[in-house]
Every structure is written in C-alpha cells, then in structure tokens.
Nucleic acid binder design. Structure first.
Lengths: 198, 198
DNA sequence: CGGTGCACAGAACGATTGTTCGGTAAGCTA
DNA sequence: TAGCTTACCGAACAATCGTTCTGTGCACCG
C-alpha cells in the first residue's frame, strides 16, 4: 500500500502562526501554539506541526528546535491572475519563496541602506526618497551604479571612465558629470532598491 | 548610589547570534547559545542574555520566550558619510531599525508581490522586472497606482477617471490609456517596490 | 446499523529548559 | 598585601517542554 497522505490543514492555522511570527520573530512553544490555534491538546498541536513540516512550512534546527521552513515566508508572487485574488492560497505553484531581505541582501554585515536625495538618477528609475541597498566595497566596475562619497555626502551615480580617470555620471541630462579631483572614494555598489509608496 | 551599569559585551557574541538567526530564523536555547558562544555554563549565558536584553538587542514574548529585540535587526541606514565605512558599527545614532519586510509590508496576509513586465510605467520609476508590493483590496482611489486584472493578466497602472468610468493610465507616453469595457477588476494597490540589481 | 476514519481531548512521562546559588581565578585598586 | 570586582564554571532544581498512548464523538459509507 502506498504511503498514506495527510489531509491538508486549516490555512488559518498557518496564517495565525505567520502573524505571530511577524510580531515576535520567533516560533512559539506547543502550548502557546495551542492557545493561538484554539486547540486544547498538545498532542494535536504536535500532529499539526508534523503536517506543516511535511508541507515545507516548518522545519527543525540541527538541535531539533522548531523553526520556519522553506515555504514559511513565501509570499504569493503572483504570476497568474486567474484566481489570484482568492482568500485561500491554493497550494499549487505560482509561489516564490523569499523574505524581501533575503532577496536583496547577500552579505548582511557589508550591506547598508542609503536614502536617495534628488532626481539625478531618475532615468535609472531611482527616485528621491528611495532606499538604495548598498554592498560596501572599495572598488567597482565601469557601468556599476555606485554610492560614492563626494564633499562629505553620499552620491549615487553611474561609474564611468574618461581618459583614464573615473567619473560619476548621473542618469538625468539636467545634472552635470562629476569629475572628482584626487581620489574617488567609493562607499559601495548598488545591489538593489526599495521604495515605499504608502 | 546610582544603579550599577553592566559592562558592554563582546560584539562577536551578538554577531554570532545574528548569523545563527539569519540561518535558522529562530533564537536558540541557552545550551545551544553556550556552544555557539564557546561558553560552558548556562548561568553565564543567562547573564549575557540579560545584558543584551538591557541593551535592546533581545526581548521576551508575553510567554517569556526569548526573541529578537528592537535593535536586533537594525541595519545601518547611512545618513552621514563621515566614518560610515567603519567596520565597527558605532553605537551612537544614524541607525534605523527595520527589516525591509517590515518596512514595506503592513498586512502580511493581504500582501502579494507582482513582477512587472514591460516599460509602461517607466515614468513612475517602475521598470521591467521590478517587484511591486501589492496590498490586495477591491477598490482604490484616483491617483493610486493599482494592479488590475485586464485580459487575464496583471497590469500596473495609474487609476484615473474619465467621464464617470475608471481608466488605467500608463506612465509612458508610448502606451495607450486602457479603457476597460465592463467592470474594472482591481487586484490591489501598490504599496512599494523592490528591485534587485545584481 | 455497524464499521472505519478523522479531528480532537486528556493524562502521563522522561527530557530539556532556564534560574539560582556557591565557587574560583585573574585583574585592578589602595 | 588585602579587598573588591569581573568573568566564568558547575551543580541542583522546579517548571516546562514535546512525545506517546489511550480515549471519544462525529461524519461518512456500505
């Protein structure tokens, strides 16, 4: 006989857990889970956890502590508008798993955020007030968008080369090319962009 | 006599914990923390945790489970280029605490990501391949950037009104205004934007 | 109407948790 | 050199953890 498949679980359970996690950044104990889910038996919590684990929403650390699984953070990356608005997140595909942090940040210890001032990079889709994700490093390649330190301020520009020296080119015809005298101090390279619109 | 101040702790402890958290998304138990930190007495772990809590890096859930504190995720939001590149994250200010997820997402259960196709919104700084953070809701206001379902596909456009009916306006003169026949189906409202550039 | 799953409850239990307390060795101060 | 503080170890302990096993009531099915 084939393996018996477990029934799918109430999606509300997962949502409640995700909400709890969003608030506390931690997976609670079984007894807390029980009250969270309105269940009164830890044994049943255990079974539910087992199924969520089976489905990839929960996982275990090497020390057998419960932790979010690969699919725990997946936010519906909506490719297909057909039935996309359903409250029930159909288990099929159309998902991509990420926290946005993981999507943008590869090396946390070398990554900073810089807020953009002004419109000088607007043709590159970088607007006033946007946050630039910067990987700090002292050098970059021509064509990279870099964050440089000019006159004690951060500037976001394209890095280019003119007659052997580096220059900073804006993405806006109304702004001049910056030709630094002396060494060009590069803070880091742009790795991403974040904008909040409400 | 004034309250006795605790000594600051080895910053390496915090980094190790942050790395562990980045990998597992969970705060480990004291015994795991002990091996993580190379400490052999849980009592000393307890003391270290107390100090991290005092400093705002750790906190407790209402059920007294250890969880990340307010400053645990703080990423340097670099305002001031002076000494910004220092490896030592000076404790002063210049910080803003956020995970990018928290910065962009207010209601996890109603939030989706939609990948943008094409250049029709380029004047709004929305490029091909960008991810739009969408708060799902069935209606919106004129002037909002909305994600609508047109011909079974997602479209990102400005919502506008013409002679009493809603229309979708691109932010690119090369594209036409969309005047839907029948009801306009709105998937949600744009709340943010994420772009990865490397 | 009798069986068979399923969704849950409840008790019992050993393992693990975090706390408390006493101890020690090193370093600074007077 | 005596005394205090600090960084850590180790043992003991009650509380809590997650597991396991045994019910129980309902729904469906023949």
């Amino acid at each position: 006989m084939a393996l018996k498949n477990s029934q799918p679980l109430d999606p509300a359970y997962l949502e409640k857990l995700q909400d709890y996690y969003a608030e506390h950044k931690v997976i609670p104990s079984y007894s807390v889970l029980a009250t969270l889910w309105g269940i009164s038996a830890k044994s049943w919590v255990s079974e539910c956890v087992r199924r969520f684990e089976e489905a990839g929403y929960l996982d275990w650390t090497p020390d057998r502590q419960l932790k979010p699984g690969a699919r725990f953070f997946e936010r519906r990356l909506a490719h297909d508008p057909v039935q996309a608005g359903l409250p029930n997140p159909a288990l099929a595909d159309g998902y991509d798993l990420v926290t946005i942090d993981d999507y943008l940040i590869r090396v946390p210890s070398r990554t900073s955020l810089v807020r953009v001032k002004g419109e000088s990079m607007i043709d590159a889709g970088i607007h006033d007030g946007d946050l630039i994700v910067v990987e700090q490093q002292p050098n970059a390649n021509v064509g990279d968008i870099v964050v440089a330190i000019v006159d004690n301020e951060f500037t976001v520009k394209y890095l280019d080369r003119e007659k052997g020296t580096f220059v900073l080119k804006p993405a806006n015809k109304a702004f001049p090319v910056i030709r630094p005298r002396g060494r060009l101090e590069i803070f880091g390279v742009m790795a991403g962009l974040v904008r909040r619109t409400r």
